[in-house]
């Protein structure tokens, strides 16, 4: 796709459409995602309720759209927080040899524990399922990928000629790190952050599905699927549509990530 002579990837356009419909969608729908309407339970998808209604007569489309907002928020905040931890950590570890041994092994330990297990056990033990806590827990166990990437890129870059030349000119270490190394890392970091975004959506939905993430009645894609799981015979649509929403968003995000990868790594 072309805009003002610049190539815009189709996946990005679709992703924008998805985001806009998640933001604006709830405004166009009259149904409340939380209030019960017991006279209308288990309606199959029809023109009035495009995705049907659930056990309590709530419109599934409205719940999927509201749930999407929450999932996207959680992902956005967790990824930002991971970047905030991972980038300085990786720069420090890669640039200063004396820190690297300890810092890199901390990454190794964190990466050896299956991420979802850790998130699960901490979330359960914490027993606090406000959205902010979920963001904190997910970020606490997601920053390692970013940190590892930044570290390896820093290691590769710091012996390049221009870093040597800047050192000789006499600029400070901080300026070297943030003005010269960091800008040259942003491409790979953008790719990694995009893929992490998709992954966080999956993790959050799994956590909410298990019952340790976003708590009902607040809708989230994961907990809607869980509610539908108990009533598969009466209402297959309750579990199916939020799942489709997850697949479509994660797929678009990954496609966009692949596009970024091609752009940044193939020259």
């Amino acid at each position: 796709m072309q805009l003002k002579g610049k190539n815009i990837p189709v996946s990005f356009v679709l992703l924008l459409i998805l985001l806009i419909s998640l933001i604006a969608g709830p405004l166009l729908i009259d149904y409340d995602p939380v209030t019960h309407d017991l006279g209308n339970s288990y309606h199959a998808p029809n023109t009035g309720h495009l995705m049907g209604t659930d056990k309590f007569g709530r419109d599934v489309l409205a719940r999927v759209l509201y749930g999407g907002r929450i999932s996207i928020w959680v992902a956005l905040l967790s990824v930002s927080l991971s970047l905030l931890i991972g980038i300085p950590y990786g720069l420090l570890s890669g640039f200063f040899d004396r820190f690297d041994l300890v810092l890199n092994n901390v990454i190794n330990v964190f990466m050896a524990i299956p991420q979802f297990l850790l998130i699960l056990s901490v979330a359960a033990v914490l027993g606090k399922s406000s959205v902010l806590w979920i963001v904190l827990i997910i970020a606490l166990f997601s920053w390692m990928d970013i940190a590892r990437l930044v570290r390896n890129q820093t290691l590769a870059l710091k012996h390049k000629d221009f870093i040597l030349a800047e050192t000789v000119i006499g600029i400070s270490k901080m300026r070297l790190l943030f003005k010269h190394l960091l800008p040259n890392l942003m491409g790979p970091v953008a790719v990694s952050a995009t893929l992490l975004f998709g992954n966080v959506i999956l993790v959050e939905s799994a956590l909410s599905f298990v019952g340790l993430g976003v708590q009902p009645p607040t809708p989230s894609w994961g907990n809607i699927i869980n509610e539908g799981r108990q009533v598969l015979i009466d209402g297959w649509w309750i579990s199916v549509f939020p799942g489709v929403a997850i697949v479509v968003s994660v797929l678009l995000i990954n496609l966009f990530g692949e596009y970024l990868q091609e752009r940044f790594f193939k020259y």
């Binding site: 390049k160 000629d161 221009f162 040597l164 030349a165 003005k179 800008p183 040259n184």
Partner: peptide, 13 residues
């Protein structure tokens, strides 16, 4: 000054 002048200039500036 060094051997490869283009590589000794920070590429994003």
């Amino acid at each position: 000054i060094f051997q490869d002048p283009k590589a000794s200039l920070s590429p994003k500036m």
